[in-house]
């Protein structure tokens, strides 16, 4: 009896455990897991208000030290030049499906009405940090550039590369038009530090940290992102199968 049980348990373990490792890589399971992501997005959008604001905290509730994550110093020569020049010759390009492509300097961005918000940054790994962000609402830039009705996603092209691949991200128009979605040039009452994405980074407050593209060089309005990069809408989405919608 004991022998049989041991054999059964061993058999079960040997079938089950390696099975679990491989089962996730089969096409039907992969499709199932992808449709679960879609289901979560649809279900959350169904029960939550589109315009709901992320909680804003007081200064007393801020993290004493805000952890920098991902790239802390872009390696390219052109970024080094911009950094040395204090980003005086840096321009944010806004293009794609817009009627008025724009190239905006940092001082032009600073001249636009600013929004300051103390919000919580939630990393996909599980940690959270609370910081104060100052910047211009993305919706304002999209209006200035007269974004086309055909645009369904806003892409962010970044100056940093990880493993030789440029970082990029994309969000849909619901998040792009959200009042707390800003391109921040200030953090904790100071100029945005290099480790946190200088000169400009995205804040998409209802999503996890990897969506908050740092070192943003260009914004592009697109109808579809399947032909861009690895086709999944972002660096980590392409590289490691992280969910494109990072609201959970």
């Amino acid at each position: 009896m004991t022998d049989r049980r041991t054999i059964l348990a061993g058999l079960g373990a040997s079938l089950l455990l390696p099975g679990c490792e491989r089962i996730g890589e089969t096409k039907p399971v992969n499709n199932l897991l992808s449709s679960v992501e879609r289901l979560t997005l649809d279900a959350q959008r169904l029960v939550t208000a589109r315009g709901a604001l992320a909680r804003e905290y007081t200064e007393a509730e801020m993290s004493p030290v805000f952890r920098a994550n991902g790239t802390r110093q872009p390696a390219s020569a052109s970024y080094a030049r911009h950094e040395a020049e204090g980003f005086a010759n840096w321009r944010l390009s806004i293009g794609g499906l817009v009627n008025r492509p724009l190239n905006l300097s940092l001082s032009q961005l600073r001249a636009l009405p600013a929004r300051t918000q103390i919000t919580r940054h939630d990393c996909v790994e599980g940690w959270s940090a609370i910081g104060k962000w100052t910047g211009v609402q993305l919706s304002r830039l999209l209006d200035l550039a007269q974004v086309s009705n055909r645009a369904r996603y806003i892409m962010f092209r970044c100056a940093d590369e990880i493993g030789g691949v440029p970082y990029y991200e994309s969000i849909d128009m619901v998040e792009a038009r959200h009042p707390q979605t800003i391109l921040a040039y200030g953090m904790n009452d100071r100029t945005l530090p290099v480790a946190h994405g200088a000169p400009l980074r995205l804040r998409s407050e209802r999503q996890l940290g990897y969506k908050h593209a740092k070192y943003v060089m260009a914004i592009q309005a697109v109808e579809d992102f399947t032909s861009i990069g690895g086709g999944k809408g972002g660096y980590w989405e392409d590289r490691a199968d992280y969910e494109w919608w990072a609201g959970i």
Partner: peptide
């Protein structure tokens, strides 16, 4: 799950289980 470390796969299995 999975046995080999993968945060993204862990999350996807977790959300399947959660549903």
């Amino acid at each position: 799950i999975p046995a080999e470390y993968s945060l993204s796969a862990g999350r996807r299995f977790h959300f399947l289980g959660a549903w």
